[in-house]
Design a protein around this nucleic acid. Structure first.
Lengths: 153, 153
DNA sequence: ATATAATAAAAGTCAGTGAAAGTCAATAGT
DNA sequence: ACTATTGACTTTCACTGACTTTTATTATAT
């Protein structure tokens, strides 16, 4: 078995044991498993992405940590989480302002997001807000931000 | 838990107990918590800055103190728009993830934003989400996005 | 009694140390 | 070709202690 698999298993086990939240210390986990610390980053960026339904936060410095959370599953059976995940997975890694608007209209119409949230996301993902980023990178960043926001819901 | 967190908690607890004003004696608090006095300064300068919505006054010498106040929020009905505008106007054009977090915590505390919105904004403004943007431009973009989102509320 | 000098009691500053996580390009496996 | 692994280097954050500055109090000289 590969190291990355072991790392990913360890994280998933923690997620299962702690109701979807795994908080680790990078160096500690690395030395427990027996890999270099930076490989933890590799595994996280490659296998715990928003597309997979995870959100990652971290803090550096003394007492730092990495926290991985699994997206909340809907207990209401309405399938909104499924709808969001479907969207996130089918959204490319580059998206225009116009597309974002259309998608948000739909989400609003379906009652998946509130009007306030839709407005907020529209504002944040507008060309105007992302103006300082050059054209080519802008659509990519927009997609990334969009996914992050969607998964956080 | 880290010492800085304990210090910060102690201050927040005092703030909550005394209608937004915490007055402490540096040495006394330091020895109660078990740290060197100067660390109190560290915590204050890193987590209770004016930008984050706090006002700090102090007096040295015999009978000295440090007083931390939550910045007054307009409490009448029509005030949240004003509060947000004030925030937007006083926010620099470059802001760290940490500062955003603290500000959102305050907005949440004041009931100006919902938990969902706070989470959404935290996710969108995290270093993680803005990763593709270079270091120097990141904090500037973050400030821009933050303002756009706030105004949209 | 008053002005001044010494002492004590606070808080402020700052540069240095160590502990973590992040980045990235080069290399190795498959 | 794609995925995994490594390690050198960077950045961020927490913490410390020696030193400074400010204020209050107390002692002393006039």
């Amino acid at each position: 078995m590969q190291m990355s698999d072991m790392i990913s298993r360890a994280i998933i086990q923690l997620l299962d044991e702690h109701e979807g939240t795994a908080q680790i210390q990078r160096n500690e986990l690395a030395s427990r498993i027996g890999c270099v610390p930076s490989q933890i980053n590799y595994v996280i960026t490659s296998r715990f992405t928003p597309e997979q339904g995870f959100i990652v936060e971290s803090k550096r410095g003394g007492g730092g940590y990495i926290r991985i959370r699994r997206m909340a599953q809907p207990h209401d059976g309405s399938g909104t989480a499924a709808a969001i995940m479907h969207l996130v997975n089918n959204l490319g890694d580059s998206v225009s302002e116009h597309t974002v608007r259309v998608i948000l209209q739909n989400l609003l119409y379906q009652g998946i997001v509130s009007q306030q949230v839709a407005k907020l996301m529209t504002a944040a993902l507008s060309d105007h807000a992302l103006r300082p980023v050059d054209q080519e990178q802008r659509d990519m960043l927009r997609a990334r931000l969009f996914k992050q926001m969607l998964v956080s819901l």
